[in-house]
Design a protein around this nucleic acid. Structure first.
Lengths: 125, 125
DNA sequence: CAGAATCCAAACCGATACTG
DNA sequence: CAGTATCGGTTTGGATTCTG
């Protein structure tokens, strides 16, 4: 594996590959939803409007594989499964929150930029 | 538009929609590459191994529309186009860097988790 | 409840060719 | 140089159905 820096991202860089995996919207949102404590499958689903069962399952598996969430099966009937953030996953919350708060704070500026852009495009068309 | 909090992401929440747009790997990587100063199209491309011209164009347009990068056409022959981070975009670098450094720092833990997970899967199969 | 399996449409993706 | 346009191929995503 090649090494890589923040200035130059090699396709084979292991950090970059991990970056690709965690930097998707559902991963971030699931972590946010789990931040306050463990939740069961359908509880997570309820917290993430718009996610399908399939996408949730896939993303949870990915997070589990990367050691970011833990999957605990509780042997009741019917079985309950609860998902919990690991300590590793917890260390990821701070960076994610900063990003999320950025979007809330900068929304007005972004909206203005979009309007200006769309107007420019419209004029040149 | 519905409001939403970090605990509950509504599908129509404007912050969430913005979040979806910026939280993709190429956006983050382009910003990192531009962090030290403006670069021209092909220079950015050289910094991002694996990106296609199409993906780069699309991502740059998206970033431009959201006010994160500025596109400056320099009227030479042939024309030169340089991309530059805006102040708004610059405010996004800190959160992104934190995320990137996380991947570098936690890589060993993640690798270990993956091996353990794959072993569990293999055993149950 | 917590998924797995399946199917189909839609989005995306890279490769190629072309342009001012 | 900095793109646009196009075209299969593949992946993705949603909806639905089924199960221990």
């Amino acid at each position: 594996m090649k090494e890589c820096s923040i200035e130059k991202f090699h396709a084979q860089c292991p950090s970059r590959e991990l970056f690709d995996q965690i930097a998707d919207k559902w991963s971030m949102m699931i972590l946010a939803v789990l931040a306050d404590g463990p939740l069961r499958f359908n509880a997570i689903k309820r917290g993430l409007e718009g996610i399908t069962q399939k996408a949730l399952t896939q993303t949870l598996r990915k997070l589990e594989r990367n050691g970011i969430v833990a999957r605990n099966v509780i042997a009741t009937s019917p079985v309950a499964v609860e998902y919990e953030i690991t300590p590793l996953g917890r260390s990821l919350i701070e960076p994610f929150k900063a990003l999320y708060y950025w979007t809330r704070e900068k929304m007005p500026e972004v909206e203005a930029a979009r309007e200006a852009f769309d107007k420019r495009m419209q004029e040149s068309a």
